[in-house]
Amino acid sequence: MRQMLNTLFVTTEDAYLSLEQENVVVNEGDRVMGRIPLRALESILCFSYKGASPALLGKCNEFGVSFAFYSPQGKYYGSVLGEANRNVLLRRRQYHMADDDNEVCSIAASFVMGKIFNARQVLERATRDHALRINVPRVKKQSARLLAALRELDDCQTADSVRGVEGDAAKCYFYAFDDLILTNKDDFYFEQRSRRPPMDRMNALLSFIYVLLSGDCRSALQGVGLDPYVGFLHTDRPGRSSLALDLVEELRPVFADRLALSLVNTHVVKAGDFEVRENGGTYLNDKGRKQVLSAWQKRKNEQIMHPFLKEKVPWGLVPYVQALLLARYIRGDMDAYPPMFWK
């Protein structure tokens, strides 16, 4: 149980939430984990199998506190919204901003700034931690190019120019990505990003983890009342959760890429965990998917210091924190959206 940004996060799998006067009470079996006044909350995100009492949900409706239900793994089930809930105004504001070229440019630049900053941090960390095992001059050169790309963002006047900077920065980052693979170089290598289908084991691993991260980002946005299909960096396309993909971008290098590299470099994932199909596409097999899913859940439980909140949170809650911050910005409660900068 954790309270952040006027939001109660309940992450204990067997927790049950009930009402006591005007307080939400979080119980684990016979133990009371905490009591929080409903008047102090804007929303509750519950990652528990047991859920909440009808009396509590009724009082949340009365007080305008949104209640979102998730599985313990982060799959979004649905929300209970009261008549006083502001989600309709939030979404109207989101749609209005998505039609405003200046707003689209500004928000897209924030996502890309987070992505490039974090990608550069991944490269810089590698030069510090593995200086004797990687081509440091080559990695440093790409890191310098990423720093230049960050500065270019300040001059971007359109969303298309932001997308151009993002595309060039991604090429610089992936140019050095193979250096970050420290072991099993015959089985795991990286020449360029390939999708639909991924053409080698490393791309297959990245694609699978990106799908997991995209699902968590989509669930996070749905839970805070935003439309995950209306984005800023990614344009609208039928069936594409564009805003979730926007949020993925800033988290991709530090959440997904670092996990993929760790799985390979520590021999958790091996060549036998993949299969090659007739079209040349490479995919994780059942055994490989189980290995990655297990590692994914462990990584989500690891604590990091959130740079904006200045407090420790599990990696698994980071998409939800960022979704809340984005909702606050869109609602007008913040002057700017603060990307997640990993340090």
Results as ranks from 00 to 15, higher is better:
residue 127 T to H: 07
residue 30 D to L: 04
residue 33 M to I: 07
residue 337 Y to G: 00
residue 303 Q to M: 15
residue 314 P to T: 14
residue 251 L to D: 03
residue 101 D to L: 05
residue 336 A to W: 04
residue 163 R to H: 01
residue 49 Y to R: 14
residue 258 R to W: 03
residue 23 N to F: 11
residue 163 R to K: 12
residue 337 Y to P: 03
residue 17 L to E: 10
residue 107 I to R: 11
residue 221 L to V: 07
residue 325 L to D: 05
residue 69 F to G: 01
residue 105 C to P: 01
residue 69 F to M: 14
residue 119 A to P: 02
residue 208 F to N: 04
residue 342 W to K: 12
residue 184 N to F: 02
residue 196 R to P: 10
residue 17 L to Q: 05
residue 228 P to G: 12
residue 193 R to M: 10
residue 309 L to H: 12
residue 343 K to H: 14
residue 310 K to R: 11
residue 225 G to H: 07
residue 341 F to V: 06
residue 208 F to I: 00
residue 4 M to V: 13
residue 281 G to R: 09
residue 193 R to P: 14
residue 160 D to M: 06
residue 60 C to P: 06
residue 263 L to T: 12
residue 14 D to N: 11
residue 64 G to Q: 10
residue 108 A to Q: 09
residue 46 C to E: 10
residue 207 S to G: 09
residue 186 D to W: 01
residue 170 A to Y: 04
residue 327 A to N: 05
residue 42 E to T: 08
residue 287 K to Y: 10
residue 207 S to T: 08
residue 96 H to G: 13
residue 79 S to H: 04
residue 175 Y to L: 15
residue 286 D to Q: 12
residue 329 Y to W: 15
residue 138 R to E: 15
residue 246 D to N: 01
residue 86 R to M: 03
residue 203 N to D: 02
residue 74 G to E: 07
residue 97 M to G: 06
residue 322 Q to T: 02
residue 196 R to T: 12
residue 55 A to E: 14
residue 43 S to W: 04
residue 296 W to L: 02
residue 258 R to Y: 02
residue 7 T to R: 00
residue 33 M to S: 11
residue 227 D to V: 14
residue 112 V to A: 00
residue 192 Q to H: 11
residue 88 V to T: 08
residue 162 V to W: 02
residue 126 A to L: 05
residue 86 R to L: 07
residue 158 T to F: 03
residue 87 N to M: 09
residue 152 E to M: 04
residue 160 D to T: 05
residue 324 L to F: 00
residue 223 G to S: 11
residue 68 A to R: 08
residue 135 N to V: 05
residue 308 F to M: 12
residue 35 R to C: 07
residue 77 Y to L: 14
residue 181 I to C: 13
residue 233 L to H: 11
residue 229 Y to V: 12
residue 59 K to Q: 11
residue 91 R to F: 09
residue 338 P to V: 01
residue 144 A to Q: 14
residue 47 F to L: 07
residue 159 A to G: 15
residue 9 F to S: 00
residue 203 N to H: 04
residue 177 F to M: 08
residue 157 Q to H: 07
residue 114 G to I: 00
residue 9 F to W: 01
residue 179 D to R: 05
residue 66 S to N: 06
residue 59 K to E: 05
residue 51 G to H: 12
residue 138 R to S: 13
residue 306 H to R: 12
residue 333 D to Y: 00
residue 240 R to P: 06
residue 288 G to E: 08
residue 112 V to N: 06
residue 231 G to Y: 06
residue 342 W to Q: 12
residue 166 E to S: 06
residue 55 A to G: 11
residue 191 E to K: 09
residue 50 K to Q: 15
residue 95 Y to C: 09
residue 331 R to P: 00
residue 213 L to D: 11
residue 165 V to E: 02
residue 238 P to M: 13
residue 140 K to V: 15
residue 172 C to F: 01
residue 102 N to Q: 13
residue 339 P to R: 05
residue 259 L to A: 01
residue 136 V to E: 10
residue 121 Q to Y: 06
residue 71 S to T: 14
residue 319 P to E: 00
residue 187 D to C: 00
residue 193 R to W: 06
residue 178 D to C: 00
residue 146 L to A: 04
residue 190 F to P: 05
residue 282 T to F: 04
residue 20 E to G: 12
residue 337 Y to L: 00
residue 236 D to W: 07
residue 171 K to C: 04
residue 76 Y to W: 10
